[in-house]
Simulated assay, not measured.
Amino acid sequence: PPSLAPRRAAAERGRDAQRNQAARREAALAEAAGEREAGLRVAESRLEEALASAARLREQLDLTRRRLAEAREELQLRRGVAVRGETGPADAVDRALYEAAETRVMQLAVENTRLRDQLADLDAVGRESEDRLAALRRRIDEQIGEIERREALRRALEAAREKLEAEKAEQVDRLAYLRTQAEKAEAESRLAKAQVARLAANIRALKEQVKRLNAALEASEAKAEGAETLVLDARLNSALVRKIDEMRRFRSEFVGKLREALAGQDLVRTQDDRFYLPAEVLFLSGSADLDKDGQQHVRRIGRALTDVAARIPEDLDWVLRVDGHTDRQRLRDRSRYKTNWELSVARAVAVVRLLVEAGVPAERLAATGFGEFHPLDPADTRDAYRRNRRIEFSLTRK
């Protein structure tokens, strides 16, 4: 229905917004993972620089140690010369060189101590960087795990949401179907009420006509002579009898045609001037929708009536009444009809509609419903209920 289109459009917009939000979350997570990866690379680069600096310091420390060792050897040699008391022209020079070597040894020792302290600091920085790098890697692994967990949760939620959306769409379609059925039932009820109103109007008109005829007959009887009255009555009675005989003959022919159409199924039942079919052969319980077999039976009735109607004189104004009857059992709560009366009217209307589709003129048909108020069998038994659930047909004059 048109009223559902805005709701579906709003639902589609909601789904698009959720998809866009999920895409933004994924992009933000990817960006955060990229930033963490970049931070990890920077930390690794800094660690590599610290390790390179430590390597250079170790080389400088080794070089300083070698120089210090050489200076100490030279200092030892010069100390040996001084101890032996060797003197000569170069004694002052040797003493100066000894002092210079001793100063150099002290400087190299200081440099060695400084380099060793720097190396220890770099080692500490390296260990701290490695610890930070390991901690950063653990954090990144944990965050990646959290991202994957959230992504799995998001996918699960998305699947659940899609399932709910599908169920919602199914419920919306079911609601639309039920509304359509309700509108159809309401239209059938309005049609049935209109037909009942027309029938009531026809009955009132017939009563007025009978009243006028009775008045005219009384006036005529008062004025006419007894012999003339007898002749008139005889003529009227003769014409009426002829019409009744013709209608009875065509009714019998119609019933015979109907029995031929439904031969071998033993479905037609007669009652006075009417015949009927059990409701079970046309409808499901509590329903006014003709099933497949019921549609075939009604079409056969339509063909039989069309065949007979072709031979009925034009001055014989006839009509086929279709009357719906039910049993006295209460309808189920889930039934679309509130009373058995409404169900009987809806069934009669359904038969009339299919007869029109089968070629019977609509003006030759009348649909009425009597509910449970005209039973064939008043007993409270299943067999009585089954007999009372019926569709009656009566070929009669208008």
Rank of each mutant, 00 (worst) to 15 (best):
S285R: 12
F393Q: 01
L119C: 00
A32W: 05
A101R: 00
E148M: 04
L178C: 08
A197K: 08
A69R: 06
E44G: 04
E208Y: 14
E218K: 13
E151K: 13
R65L: 15
G369P: 06
A192T: 10
A239H: 14
D317E: 09
V255Q: 01
A71S: 06
A348G: 08
E49S: 13
M106L: 14
L354D: 07
L136F: 09
E48Q: 10
E167L: 13
S45G: 14
L217A: 14
R127E: 10
D94R: 05
R15Q: 08
L29K: 08
A288P: 03
V93R: 13
G126W: 00
R139K: 08
D123T: 09
Y385M: 10
K168Q: 09
E148A: 03
S53G: 02
R137H: 01
K292Y: 00
R116Y: 04
E221S: 15
G145I: 02
R15S: 03
L57P: 01
T180Y: 14
E146V: 11
R79Y: 02
A17K: 08
R397C: 11
E188P: 01
V231D: 04
E158V: 07
R67Q: 01
A222F: 06
N214R: 10
P313H: 02
L320A: 06
V105Q: 09
R179P: 01
L57I: 05
D62N: 03
E280Y: 05
R36D: 06
L320E: 00
R79L: 10
R15D: 13
K243F: 02
S53A: 15
A55F: 04
R19M: 08
R204D: 14
A367C: 01
W341H: 11
E165L: 08
G294F: 00
A350G: 01
Q143K: 09
L75E: 07
S344I: 02
S344L: 00
R46H: 12
P361W: 00
R269P: 02
D141W: 06
T339K: 03
